[in-house]
Amino acid sequence: MSVTRVELAGRSYEVRVDGGLLADVANQCGPLLRKKRVPVITDANVAKHWQEPVAKSLEAAGHEPRFLVLDPGEGSKSWAVLERVMDWLLAEEVERGDHILALGGGVIGDLTGFAAAILKRGCGFIQLPTTLLAQVDSSVGGKTAINTSAGKNLVGAFHQPSLVLADLDTLSTLPQRELGAGYAEVIKYGILGDRAFFDWCEDNGAKVMAGDREAQEYAVTESVKAKARIVAEDERETTGTRALLNLGHTFGHALEAQTGFSDRLLHGEGVALGMVLSARYSARKAYISQDDAARVTAAISSAGLPSEIAALGLNCSGDALAAHMLHDKKMDAGTLPFILLRDIGEAFVDKQVELSDVSTFLGEQLQAH
């Protein structure tokens, strides 16, 4: 088992990476589960595989697991589902000192974390991420949110979990497309801040995608270490360091919005395309070479991830995609910072980008390749 501590002022927590963690969840959580009744929020897809082992572990330890099983997908990150979750938690008599278990991918983690943040002005929760994307990104760092009609993740809170258990066994139940969506967030850490890890991803990405346990454990552990370092330095994204984690997200969220936040484009796929666009736009601005931009594209494409927005068949203009960016939560004083590259492994925040130029660039990309 690898254990990484997310060091925050007065409230550090562990991220444990190993197989068999869900089957041992009661022991792993230990005294954090202080009452007999344990609320668990999950979705129907995850419940098919992991509700039974989690329930057995909790029951064997004398707990009474209570499950709320939601519909899978981004549609559950809504006001209506949040209300349902809150009413359920209150009916279960969850107290401020209790911990809610979030068993699932990023949607369940974000929704459960936000519910925990606002229930009785804040109670505890434990992340049990069951997708690669959630294990390496959304379960660590305390960002919680729901979506609204105005855009993705615009209503939320910073609320850190008390523990994260990343069970590698869950990766074997993921569809290949979901695994790829998570791998996009893995390679992101190399592109934004660790050239050596990017090199490793180039050489080992196929192994991660093929289910090689050693490669998956290394990928998850190194990603968590990178995320933990950044979160410890800039928990609430005020110094600019944590903003680097948004590499690919501004472009990616625009693509997700254009596709209606649907299964047509998974979040990780949007991030993958967004990183390609960030690299190409960085080359357009002469920050990096065209060869480096091509290398980023090749590394993403070789993992089976989408790398050309023209292939999406969006039937829209660059202006339409750029317009989605106006609703980005990173807007500050009327300007939108972009995460661009000075080198592979060296991302930076550029606050001088003209959105009109981005629109032109996106129009070219829609027609290219």
Rank of each mutant, 00 (worst) to 15 (best):
V220I: 08
R242K: 13
F338L: 13
I146C: 01
I288C: 10
R242T: 13
T241D: 09
G106F: 02
I230R: 04
N204G: 07
E235L: 04
G106L: 03
M331S: 11
C201T: 07
L171V: 12
R66E: 15
A254N: 06
V94L: 13
F114S: 00
A232C: 11
A368I: 09
S2L: 08
L314H: 06
V349P: 03
A303V: 04
L32V: 11
D319A: 15
F348S: 05
A166C: 12
A226I: 08
G334P: 02
Q160I: 00
D343F: 07
D87M: 12
I146S: 05
A226E: 11
L255N: 02
D212G: 07
D263R: 13
Y183V: 03
S317R: 12
R66S: 14
N147P: 01
D194H: 04
F158T: 05
R66Q: 15
R5L: 12
L305G: 09
C316N: 10
D71H: 13
E64A: 15
S302M: 11
D328T: 10
D291F: 04
L355C: 06
E237W: 05
S76V: 03
T148W: 04
L90C: 12
I126S: 09
G182A: 09
P129G: 04
A210E: 14
G304D: 08
G260F: 06
K48V: 14
A102C: 10
R280W: 11
V46W: 02
E59H: 08
R295D: 14
D137E: 08
D137T: 07
A368M: 09
L366Y: 10
N246R: 02
L326I: 10
V38A: 06
R236T: 14
D263F: 13
L21F: 07
H99V: 14
G334Y: 08
G313Q: 11
E59N: 10
Q352I: 06
I339E: 00
L340N: 09
V164W: 03
S302K: 15
L171R: 08
L266M: 11
L90S: 14
I118G: 00
S138I: 05
A157V: 00
R11S: 13
